[in-house]
Design a protein around this nucleic acid. Structure first.
Ligand SMILES: NC(=O)c1ccc[n+]([C@@H]2O[C@H](COP(=O)([O-])OP(=O)(O)OC[C@H]3O[C@@H](n4cnc5c(N)ncnc54)[C@H](O)[C@@H]3O)[C@@H](O)[C@H]2O)c1
Ligand SMILES: NC(=O)c1ccc[n+]([C@@H]2O[C@H](COP(=O)([O-])OP(=O)(O)OC[C@H]3O[C@@H](n4cnc5c(N)ncnc54)[C@H](O)[C@@H]3O)[C@@H](O)[C@H]2O)c1
Lengths: 224, 224
DNA sequence: AATCGATTGTGAACAAGAGAACTAGCTTGT
DNA sequence: ACAAGCTAGTTCTCTTGTTCACAATCGATT
């Protein structure tokens, strides 16, 4: 009951944008820019300048009025807030089409999320090597995680297996899961779950595309 | 200026959930269920029952009080609203690791989004066959789209090429784009853009994981 | 030192979304 | 025909997120 965290609570929407700023700032840093205004950063991140300022203000007052933000320092602060200091491992479960593409992708490691284990249930795949890493069996999943290890689990199995895999990940101590299977997965309180559903994205785009098309037709009708 | 569309405007958040209901309903239908209540559907979709009712009410009054919704009829209505009647083609640009996985995936076609073209810039890849489809060159992109064709473009190229590809897609008449490259892409008004950024998802998960961890430490401290 | 232009940080208005509570209406059993 | 029990549809309130507008503050310039 003690006021343990008098910390400012960073809104969810802001958390989702911080990585975008981080990426833009990294690019700026690499091209030698030392200072950036909220307006410029907003342009790069594809958002509104006021939003940038408000988002950054949750981290503290790291800008200089009349000047802008020092790129390197701001980057350091976002790093700190996002927990980039301590790398977080990633376990990929399900090494089919998608899982293999993910395993072969270097972009995660580059951004501080090294793939630490590959897991599948297919005996034909277990034991084989992918991107310099041996595929382990899902039944051995408990032994994969060292105590206290912070790890993100990626589910890239068929939808039917997703909930089961999630349960096993949670049982093994994983508290963050990224689900690619097109199905609803539920996890206990305290476990964070995010999903990436490509078919869903297409359906959403499809809706707007179709709506625009019918609107255009309606507009044409009213012309006649 | 005429009130062409006296249509109820479906909120964005609702549009994003309709495909989820759609999937749950499809499962119900396949297992022979004919009627479903908002409560049950909410469970399957992982949301709140009130939200389900409100979302569905934007489509019209298709439920029966005291009973629930007729699965098949509701499915038909969502289909109609999402524009499932007319299939929407998908063009994948960039056939590396990820693009190939997408091209080999049947889940899109199954859900009404047949892949209609594969495009790359690498001469070594152009002309080769993938999943029964020939890879075309990006310079020929204009000729790929028949007039009036509604198509969604998927960008799976390196980040550096993404904006250029988006521009070419737009120039060729594509009005909906799904971007996988980890970079901000801007498109003209009237073009819909959605993004899937895996590294970003990991970073968001990483933030919460780290926050929880430090909170736990803080709590332990206050115990001592 | 005083002024000026620029840019941050934030209070407040505004908009969108979520969820609870209520109302209306159907179906079934008597 | 009527009552009882469900469940859809709607209204209201609360929360979250976005945007605007402006005062505070900095560096530069005279
Ligand atoms: N391939 C894509 O481009 C793509 C696109 C969108 C969504 N998805 C989704 O991603 C998931 C994976 O797709 P995919 O094409 O790679 O499928 P896939 O069938 O090629 O691969 C699935 C893998 O999961 C393994 N697996 C099955 N059950 C398992 C279990 N219980 N534990 C561990 N591993 C298990 C299988 O052995 C196989 O290697 C699917 O849910 C699919 O809908 C894939
Ligand atoms: N592979 C993954 O699992 C993964 C995960 C997350 C994000 N991504 C992102 O997805 C994108 C693709 O990743 P990848 O691993 O497939 O990369 P890749 O390098 O394997 O493939 C890129 C492909 O794009 C083609 N290409 C390059 N420029 C082009 C252009 N102007 N027009 C058309 N085609 C062009 C290349 O010829 C190549 O075939 C990248 O932006 C990457 O960051 C990939």
């Amino acid at each position: 009951m003690a006021p343990v965290s008098p910390r400012r609570r960073i809104p969810e929407a802001t958390v989702a944008r911080l990585p975008v700023y981080h990426r833009s700032l990294t690019e700026l840093k690499e091209s030698g820019v030392t200072t950036v205004s909220s307006e410029q950063l907003a342009d790069l991140a594809g958002v509104n300048a006021a939003k940038v300022r408000k988002d950054l203000s949750y981290l503290g007052s790291y800008g200089t009025r009349g000047v802008g933000y020092e790129v390197e320092y701001l980057l350091f602060q976002i790093d700190r807030e996002l927990g980039f200091a301590n790398d977080l491992g990633v376990v990929i479960v399900g090494l089919g089409n998608l899982g293999q593409a993910l395993a072969n992708y270097d972009g995660f490691g580059d951004r501080g999320f090294p793939v630490t284990a590959l897991v599948d249930a297919d005996p034909a795949k277990v034991g084989s090597t992918l991107h310099g890493m041996q595929v382990q069996h899902i039944d051995d999943i408990e032994s994969i995680f060292a105590d206290g290890d912070l790890t993100i689990g990626i589910i890239a199995t068929p939808a039917a297996a997703a909930q089961g895999v999630a349960d096993r990940l949670v049982a093994a101590g994983v508290r963050s899961i990224l689900n690619f299977a097109p199905t609803v997965v539920t996890v206990p309180d305290g476990v964070h779950l995010r999903k990436v559903d490509l078919a869903l994205e297409l359906q959403i785009l499809g809706f707007y595309e179709q709506r625009d098309a019918t609107e255009a037709v309606n507009a044409a009708d009213s012309d006649s």
